[in-house]
Nucleic acid binder design. Structure first.
Lengths: 145, 145
DNA sequence: TAACTATATTGTATTTATTACAAAGTTAGT
DNA sequence: ACTAACTTTGTAATAAATACAATATAGTTA
């Protein structure tokens, strides 16, 4: 799947932050850029490792703080797909599902399957639905099997 | 949803373990019972707290060991629905989806919606699909809103 | 621009879920 | 009952995330 396969400029990222009333610090821009560009659904740790290469004074806590701010501002979404850690996705995205590779742990976008039956939710108040496919990604499938 | 809403006897649980070649220790029976009866998709910690009431010498490590054994034996399934921890479900279950309450954290069963379109998986090797609804369970919905 | 206030970042310490591992205990088969 | 294999237990270690206080930065007012 290939939406948002282009790179957002700093100006665009700053604009997104401004719209939500979030002060556009270097760190926040970098965290948002890391999630928006690349489409790799990174974990907090992956974000930290990537950004701190270019910005050595970065603290892990700042990454977590920034992520919380971005999630609260609705720019970023937490994906609860793996039990050990959280992955982050750009929030304003077309409906799609996810694929979680059981070998490399990476998360990929897939199209969202259409549903026929709207199920009987029996009193449950539903905000959102996640569809998660699990298995081996093309790369890991080649290496293993 | 109300499948498996009956209590499995110790004899049945022991039978399940035997079938998979797992030695039916007190601890393993208790862990399996906790998951099979109650239908609450407990976490390792919830299992530990419940069982250790009746069996004070129980070690947390034993709970984890038992869970791994049961998962390997195919009797129990790990649900990766929340990023902080794992929930456990009895494995041989009819197709169903899950509902994760964002307030109390409990996980409930829901029917599985029928899909129309089988999506283009583009080279991904899919083992399983999880459908996860998120929102407020009936109880939390009353308390909050 | 200086002073003041509000907000962000950083580093350290802590918490929670889980795993590693070795010692002690238990079970099954001879 | 003896031995070998397997289980349980407790402690220590690891990983992800949070709490919090000190420092730094940005924004506002005079």
């Amino acid at each position: 799947m290939a939406f948002a396969e282009y790179t957002l400029t700093d100006t665009e990222l700053v604009g997104m932050l401004h719209e939500r009333g979030i002060r556009p610090s270097i760190q926040r821009i970098a965290v948002l850029a890391c999630i928006a560009n690349g489409r790799r659904h990174p974990t907090a740790d992956e974000i930290y490792r990537e950004i701190s290469q270019h910005y050595p004074s970065l603290s892990r806590t700042t990454v977590y703080n920034s992520l919380h701010t971005l999630v609260e501002g609705g720019l970023v979404r937490e994906l609860e797909i793996r039990s050990g850690t959280c992955n982050y996705d750009l929030a304003p995205q077309p409906r799609h599902s996810h694929f979680s590779c059981r070998r490399c742990g990476q998360i990929f976008d897939l199209p969202m399957p259409e549903t026929v039956s709207s199920i009987d939710t029996g009193g449950f108040d539903i905000d959102s639905v996640d569809v998660i496919f699990r298995g081996l990604c093309p790369k890991c499938h080649k290496q293993t099997n």
